[in-house]
């Protein structure tokens, strides 16, 4: 049955703020976002929180719950003890705008800096042929809902504002890996990953993989293989040309 939970929500803006206590009703089956909405509707109409789908599909409701980066709409209240105090704070890696809402524009700027998919010249719409097994690797990365929880947790930028310039972060690494593994992409991306996006800063702690709500194996399937290939390539630039030839052969429609 329902019970009263004790929430501590960070309230404030860029000029500062602090945790505010709320006693709030919780019903069976609810998630943290439901409880925040109830606080909003009944006790604090101006409490700022981002959300959209309430089904783990849009990646809007990222925040830190008891210090752990999570989607509030997919965090069941039942994982907490009823007498536990629940701390809800904004993502720490990004500047706060208000309450639980942060300025995530850093991520959009980095996304803008990744060269787009480069289709094979001459291949017309409708002529693309790719095998399921070849698209699956990139499809794993395209599951990303851009919640930026991986970016939030990554220690390279979490408390190191100064690294943000040179380090794009795990979300961008999987985007690079996705394009790199796209069966038809013809751009060369590996050296770029190392040099422009700061892959070298990553020391494979795997925290990003742990928090990813989509279960994307960011480190094992994207970062490590990319690191390995970058090392190979530094010594042997040939594989790129081999790969490219393979792409052109595949792209030819039957």
């Amino acid at each position: 049955m329902g019970y009263t939970a004790h929430f501590r929500v960070w309230r404030g803006d860029a000029n500062g703020g602090g945790l505010v206590d709320y006693e709030v009703e919780v019903n069976p089956g609810e998630v943290v976002l439901d409880v925040i909405h109830r606080i909003q509707a009944e006790q604090a109409g101006d409490l700022a929180v981002r959300w959209n789908c309430k089904a783990g599909k849009c990646g809007s409701c990222s925040m830190e719950i008891n210090g752990y980066p999570r989607l509030a709409c997919m965090t069941r209240m039942s994982i907490y003890r009823q007498d536990e105090i629940i701390n809800v704070t904004p993502m720490r890696t990004f500047p706060v705008i208000k309450d639980l809402v942060t300025d995530v524009s850093f991520n959009f700027e980095k996304l803008l800096s990744i060269p787009a998919f480069a289709p094979p010249p001459g291949l017309q719409p409708g002529e693309y042929r790719m095998q399921q097994e070849d698209v699956e690797r990139s499809q794993e990365f395209r599951k990303c809902i851009e919640c930026f929880l991986c970016q939030d947790v990554c220690h390279v930028i979490r408390d190191h504002e100064e690294n943000k310039k040179q380090f794009a972060g795990p979300r961008m690494f999987i985007r690079l890996a996705e394009l790199d593994m796209h069966p038809l992409d013809v751009a060369d991306r590996e050296i770029a990953a190392q040099e422009d996006f700061g892959l070298g800063f990553c020391n494979i702690t795997k925290c990003c993989t742990e928090v990813c709500p989509e279960g994307i194996k960011i480190t094992d399937n994207a970062i490590i293989p990319m690191k390995e290939r970058v090392v190979d390539r530094k010594y042997d630039p040939l594989p790129f040309w081999r790969r490219r030839r393979r792409v052109e052969e595949r792209a030819t429609p039957q």
Partner: peptide, 24 residues
Amino acid sequence: SPMRVWELETYGALFDRTPEGKIS
């Protein structure tokens, strides 16, 4: 609509495939 779907592939979309490698 077929052309609008195929066009998405030229933007980088990766739909599930048929055994012949077409869009499933």
